[in-house]
Design a protein around this nucleic acid. Structure first.
Lengths: 184, 184
DNA sequence: AAAACCATGTAAGATGTTACATGATTAA
DNA sequence: TTAATCATGTAACATCTTACATGGTTTT
């Protein structure tokens, strides 16, 4: 990932509506969870350099109560960079399944430990599945079905499928572990 | 990931048999593809520091033909660190789906581009699925079914399930895109 | 009264990638 | 003869995380 994907995430989000750094953080956490993640340490510095590069503009909002807010909007140049990037082939997926790593070497732990790892994994995926399903229902409930909604829906469907497959696997894996223990 | 997971991948692999840095690279590429990835820039320096810490030992093999090989073996201390780590809960999964990122903002690209992204994704997952299936057959064909094989099989099953779900999604997504285009 | 949320950010360090360097052997 | 495989590594850079700092507002 030599080409700073963070920048394109921010451009993509700002292509829809002006947002603050905080908004971006929240959006990434809720809507982009599972697809991509960003920390404050990436978001704020990147916004700053993007502004310098003329990809986005800033509007500072001072309010009587509450902290100031810096609302960023995408520029024409920013939009062009975004569409250029959209037309490039995507990098291959990066997955880091620490649970699989631990399971791969599970011969050195006791079956209860391994079973617990799988249960934790199942819990994480169940949460994900529910969040995705909720999100899908929100999309369904939208009064107008926009282009935006169509593509977001496609992405949500993959999230749902993968988390569903993960949950099913977890159930089967726990069962296999039981049988394995019994068969000793 | 403050706790250098690279170290535990190396310990895990070395817990089975002594390996060179090169062997480790190959094993990660073939057996751990999808679960975790490591580059030479991580493997060689980490092996060096692990040796200093007494987690592994090195045996240098000079051969008449071919380059020297440094064969690393796990120590008692290394094995203890490994099992300690195996007993800790796993960190949540990290996924970076650049394709989903591009699809999420797909309203700004033309449908052909989006369709191409999905086809690339399908191709990657088909390869993965085939590699995993092949690996599974190898496990089935093993004369003795060891503890090691059991846990590796569990991990392979998840890889298969997820890549299968991804392929199915890709097919459906391409179809949805066709209908979407037609329905304009 | 405490916790959570809104809202900004920085600094230090950890982690990871890329490209390069070296050079022999073996397969196509 | 070209490419791939075996085998080692480093340096520079890119990226990302963690923890901290600040301070008001709203909810429990």
């Amino acid at each position: 990932m030599k080409e700073n994907t963070t920048k394109f995430v921010l451009l993509g989000l700002l292509s829809r509506r002006p947002l603050t750094g905080y908004d971006i953080k929240k959006t990434v956490e809720t809507r982009l969870d599972y697809v991509w993640d960003l920390s404050n340490g990436q978001i704020y510095p990147t916004l700053k350099t993007m502004e310098k590069e003329g990809l986005i503009t800033k509007k500072v909002e001072t309010r009587e109560n509450g902290p100031i807010r810096k609302i960023y909007s995408i520029t024409k140049k920013g939009f062009e960079e975004l569409t250029d990037w959209l037309n490039q082939p995507a990098h291959p997926e990066i997955n880091r399944y620490e649970i699989l790593l631990k399971l791969m070497f599970g011969e050195h732990a006791d079956p209860e430990t391994n079973s617990k790892h799988i249960q934790d994994f199942k819990r994480r995926n169940t949460q994900l599945y529910e969040a995705m399903s909720q999100f899908e229902r929100n999309l369904d409930g939208m009064p107008v079905q926009t282009e935006e909604a169509f593509y977001v829906r496609l992405a949500v469907l993959l999230g749902k499928s993968i988390s569903k497959a993960s949950i099913d696997w977890a159930e089967k894996a726990i069962q296999m572990l039981e049988e394995h223990k019994a068969g000793e």
